[in-house]
Amino acid sequence: MDSSGWQLFLDSFWPIVWGGISGTIPLAFASFAIGLVIALGVALARLSKNRVLSGAARFFVSVVRGTPLLVQLFVIFYGMPAIGIVLDPWPSAIIAFSINVGGYGAEIIRAAILSVPKGQWEAGYTIGMSSGTTLRRIILPQAARVSVPPLSNTFISLVKDTSLASLILVTELFRVAQEIAAFSREFMLIYLEAALVYWLFCLVLSSAQGRLEKRLDRYVAV
């Protein structure tokens, strides 16, 4: 790399990182938080004995997993105005990503709930708990431990998938990089730099995952 390339790399590093801190990360965290709530609701609906509820949940999961995220994003941002719903880029992106996390997360949470032995439900019932309290106090804390690794996977995928939001005009990491690249014409350098910054973010998140797993593992023999 010649000195002007190195200088460009340094000059664009903080703008790209800032695009991540102000765009990518809040977008990912907000979507993941909302998505988890959706996922839990959908997982419980799928486990419900009510056939309409479990059928609806199954349908939701099937559609979310069976259609490209980019298409979902475009339907919400470019498609919805046709039926009179006009949303700004940010809300559109958060809605699309939340729904996506909801679909994938639902299956993870459902499997995690099913992995808790039936005796734990029974123990909850015999100390007088309702099924709602048993779920909240006994089952979900144990399911959480099981679901952290796969949900972390979903989260890290999400962090990278937020780059798609650049296509509906959300200013995030990748969009900043695109603008710098278009201006400087140094596509290779800038896009590799963007990849590096994504990777750095994901390294930090992975180490947070490791710490969370360790904390949740404190009650099992390792």
Binding site: P117, T126, G128, P141, Q142
Partner: peptide, 21 residues
């Protein structure tokens, strides 16, 4: 059912202690 359950307490074959507590 809840009233019935309140009268008794169960000790299981596989203890079924809550592992996270």
């Amino acid at each position: 059912r809840l009233a019935m359950r309140d009268r008794s307490a169960m000790v299981f074959q596989q203890h079924n202690l809550f592992p996270h507590m």
